[in-house]
Design a protein around this nucleic acid. Sequence first.
DNA 1: TACGTTATGGACGATCGATTCCATAACTGA
DNA 2: TCAGTTATGGAATCGATCGTCCATAACGTA
Lengths: 199, 199
Amino acid sequence: MPRPRAFDERQVLERAREQFWATGYAGTRMDDIAQATGLGKGSLYGAFGDKGKLFHRVFGDWCTAVVEVAEGQLAGGPDAEALTRLSGYVHLMAENTASDTERRGCLLAKGAAELAQHDPTVAGRSAETMTALLTLLRTEISAAQRHGDIDSAADPERLAALLLTVVRGIEAVGKAGLDPETLRNIADTALAVLPVREA
Amino acid sequence: MPRPRAFDERQVLERAREQFWATGYAGTRMDDIAQATGLGKGSLYGAFGDKGKLFHRVFGDWCTAVVEVAEGQLAGGPDAEALTRLSGYVHLMAENTASDTERRGCLLAKGAAELAQHDPTVAGRSAETMTALLTLLRTEISAAQRHGDIDSAADPERLAALLLTVVRGIEAVGKAGLDPETLRNIADTALAVLPVREA
DNA sequence: TACGTTATGGACGATCGATTCCATAACTGA
DNA sequence: TCAGTTATGGAATCGATCGTCCATAACGTA
């Protein structure tokens, strides 16, 4: 029987993520990751293939986590609280960006910006993620409409796309330099302009 | 008197921009730029300094252009058409992303994502650009409010921030893979939810 | 026309970074 | 305890890339 691995794969992926997150794909050296994880290059390549595969792994995990966070905030619950859940989600995302004092942004946005154009795997994974988020938002908006908190004449698909755009946009303008207070206000404003039920 | 330059600086910067736009900062080689512009490395370095300085130049020009486009769509005109101008601007931005079949995205977003965290020049320039766009949008929203097309109870500063977020967000979700039709719908929806004057 | 100055562009040097290689270590089942 | 297998980690390889250097060219001026 073979010699067992001496490292925890989860932990190594976490460290690798920190590196890619901090310095991007091209800006991260395999030496950096070896140093950060304490692994030798041989172990690193043996366990994860090459730099590209390792990034795909990290990127995929991140995308999964992004959707899981949204599911945690949005999925399930009574219609009566659907609008509250939506509000909680949008504010959480704004807060994430607002409190990102190191300006690291979101690895999904960063990775897509750097690689989506030339890397089909990254492009596909990020597109899937958008679709999944859209579905979650649409479901929740429909629930809020059923309960009468959002005008039922509005197209839930379109409102979902708008909210997704706002959430991702907050990340973008945050990275571009808008201050935290403004970011929080944007979340408020976006929720405030949603069409309420016709009285 | 010295020998004059044989190249057009504007044209060289344009070619360099194409390269950086297509492959990012780290992903672009100076040899690529030399090839694309037809200049030798000596001329390139002699005229623009190093790779970083060249990128800063290109990035700065791009930011200027982004603001100029917004000014072209927004600045000036009668209050009666302010909402039309706003609509035109948001739709133009959506159309830009929707028709970007090569998925190049916006150099401002791409450059900020890749470098803002570690390059104060890029961070500063992108922040300035956001501020300038905010000002343009706020002015136009105020005009629309004066004419009664937008509820005057709304805070123009906040609506401006929201619209800016939507515009930048469309770029982000477009790069992440949403289809052109959805992008156009987002622009429509964003304009549709703006609070209209109380009847 | 001769000179001083700057432009040109391709060769060159030095570094850097991804990946491979290898000698050694660790572990398990027989 | 021995053999077989995989892990380890650092040295070595190999290609790529930034920036420099230099011989030459072009231009204006005296």
